[in-house]
Computed example of a mutant assay.
Amino acid sequence: MEKKHYLMDVVLMRLVLITVLILYHAMCIHTGAWKPPIEGFQQIVVYDWIGMLPINFFLEAMVLISGSLLGYKLLLKPESLTFNICVVKKAKRLLLPCFLFSILYYIMFLDTNISLFCIVLHIVNGCGHLWFLPMIFWCFVITYLIAKFIPSRSELQSLLLVIFALMAIYNPLSSLPAGLGSVGNFLFYFYAGYLLKLGHLKLPIANSRNIIIATSTFFVMFLVYMIIRQEIHPTDIISKAAKMLSMNIAHMMMCITAIFTIYTTANKPCVIRYLTDRPQLITISGYCYGVYIYQQFILKLLYYRTPMLMLVNKWLLPWIAFVIALVVSLLLCHLTLRTRWGRYLIG
């Protein structure tokens, strides 16, 4: 029963997070994260706000899922704490697809006239959205080393969690290549998920009062974050550092409150029963890794390689692109997983 309970919460979180991921990327032409698709393109302010909403929690929540999966696996099978399972297999699972799809991404969307060294560096770092894969690989490696060589005493785990939280606010590793530069931003959430599933970290009671407080805090912090982002324009180094620090603290508070709300909702018995009775949703949740890889390719093609912008009303454009990317990504995953090499890459 515990295994089914755990799998069901992961199912819901994956379904929610992969949906908001595609929504965020569909709005990237309005948030400034992607370059304007055509000269003179007018960004829509409300879509900037809609696009910035999911980016302030969904990646961290996805990382927490990965950490909790590792913790749950080691809880069930402590003998799985081996270099082969925790490092070698994760390298095959994460780095191989990263490098193969990064080569394709680079050929399709990036400048091929630069030096070979720079091209290789881009690919190793993960092109486009694929940067996430080497980053999560290093989270597995670091957590494996901690579990293997550092005593699992509660005070040490708490100290590490505090250190990783401080790194999430100010990342001292940001200049490192091959995914290591992003580890500092996300290791806190990975390790928290790991401890959570081992039972070494407890969340507040998931009653209505706490969920309302968490949700309200998220939206207040989001408002603060957006005001700082749009209205404060520092000119000196100290003011710029203060702005960055303030935004990072607000971002962490949004991540923690959103994850609490999603995770506790996913663990409600009624939600678990609902998902248990709908195996098709469990199947779709298994596509999420492939959807993550495919969706940005589709959106980039729609925005930069088709006349879609000329044919669709600008207010409808991101919503239509969102639906197309979601449906086509699911279809591509279904077809890919029917092949042996596809199951090896994204299965």
Results as ranks from 00 to 15, higher is better:
M1W: 15
K4N: 13
V10F: 01
M13W: 00
M13K: 02
G32V: 05
K35I: 10
P36H: 12
Q42M: 04
Q43P: 12
V45F: 13
V45E: 11
N56Y: 03
F58N: 05
V63G: 01
S66D: 05
L74C: 09
P78E: 13
F83Q: 08
C86Q: 14
V87L: 09
K89C: 07
K90M: 15
L96G: 04
P97S: 08
T112K: 05
N113A: 04
I123A: 00
V124D: 02
N125C: 09
H129K: 09
L130E: 00
F132Q: 05
W138G: 03
K148V: 07
R153E: 14
L156R: 07
L166A: 15
A168Y: 01
L173G: 00
N185A: 04
F186N: 03
F186H: 05
F188A: 06
Y189N: 01
F190K: 03
F190H: 06
Y191Q: 08
L195N: 02
L195S: 06
K197R: 15
L198I: 10
G199W: 05
I205T: 12
A206S: 11
A206N: 10
N207H: 11
N210A: 13
F219G: 10
L223Q: 04
Y225R: 07
E231V: 08
I232K: 00
I232F: 12
S239A: 13
K243P: 00
N248F: 04
H251L: 09
M254K: 02
I256C: 08
I262A: 00
T264R: 06
A266T: 06
R273N: 15
L275G: 02
P279N: 14
L281M: 08
I282Y: 03
I284K: 01
I298Q: 10
L299T: 11
Y304C: 07
R305D: 15
T306R: 14
T306S: 15
A325L: 07
V328A: 09
L330D: 11
L332V: 09
L332K: 03
C333M: 05
L337W: 04
R340F: 06
R340E: 12
I346P: 02
G347A: 14
G347M: 06
